[in-house]
């Protein structure tokens, strides 16, 4: 089974300053800048998220398991998706991880999103999704990417997604799996002789 070459991940995360600059520009563009001054964004993006890729990875993995409970926690694919080039999320993933942890600290006094129980992680993500403007869009994009990575199993085409009983590519159904042997029982009265409408 041939595989699709995976796009190389974005080489580095945006620097904290660059991410904040882009966010500020985006907020202005979205007309939502007034309630999200850049200094808050700077506080929300501690430097460790620019330098500790392990922190980002752990946080994103916990995010995936929050969005898709039951996803394989050992599967490296779902966190790779956040760096993909087909979606503009990639450069912002460090900021996103930092934002998850900031909300975690604000609500639970603990700065590690990945250490929260599932219900509390869900609370954090729901709060992020409720945000208007760029932040809310960032959370929506992250949920979408997590679902794509897990359900479509884009990094292991042939394996599919056992969570939803999806076999993946390279698997052919048996005749019994493809159809029912007594098709006539299902067929409704046809209107045409050939299948073409009159």
């Amino acid at each position: 089974m041939s595989r699709v070459p995976v796009s190389p991940p974005v080489a580095v995360l945006l620097s904290r300053r660059e991410a904040v600059r882009r966010l500020a520009v985006a907020l202005v563009g979205a007309g939502a800048a007034a309630c999200a001054p850049v200094r808050i964004a700077l506080k929300a993006y501690p430097a460790e998220f620019s330098t500790d890729s392990g922190m980002v990875e752990r946080t994103l993995r916990a995010f995936v398991l929050t969005v898709v409970p039951g996803a394989d926690p050992e599967d490296p694919g779902p966190t790779r998706v956040f760096a993909e080039r087909f979606h503009p999320f990639g450069p912002h993933r460090g900021f996103f991880a930092a934002d998850l942890c900031r909300r975690t600290r604000q609500r639970f006094g603990e700065g590690r999103f990945d250490r929260l129980p599932a219900a509390e992680r869900t609370w954090v993500v729901r709060r992020g999704l409720r945000q208007r403007g760029v932040v809310g869009r960032m959370y929506a994009g992250a949920v979408l990417l997590a679902q794509i990575a897990v359900y479509a199993r884009i990094y292991d085409d042939a394996r599919g997604s056992s969570l939803i009983d999806f076999d993946g590519g390279g698997h052919l159904p048996t005749p019994a799996g493809l159809t029912y042997p007594d098709a006539g029982r299902f067929l409704a009265r046809p209107l045409t002789a050939t299948g073409n409408p009159a």
Partner: peptide, 28 residues
Amino acid sequence: VAPEDVPKSGLVFSLLMKNLGYSCDRAR
């Protein structure tokens, strides 16, 4: 398409229509 080549989801759709007395044709 021949009846024996209609996938399960197509047959289920046809049954939904049949149950209500509606028509359904095999496509081309």
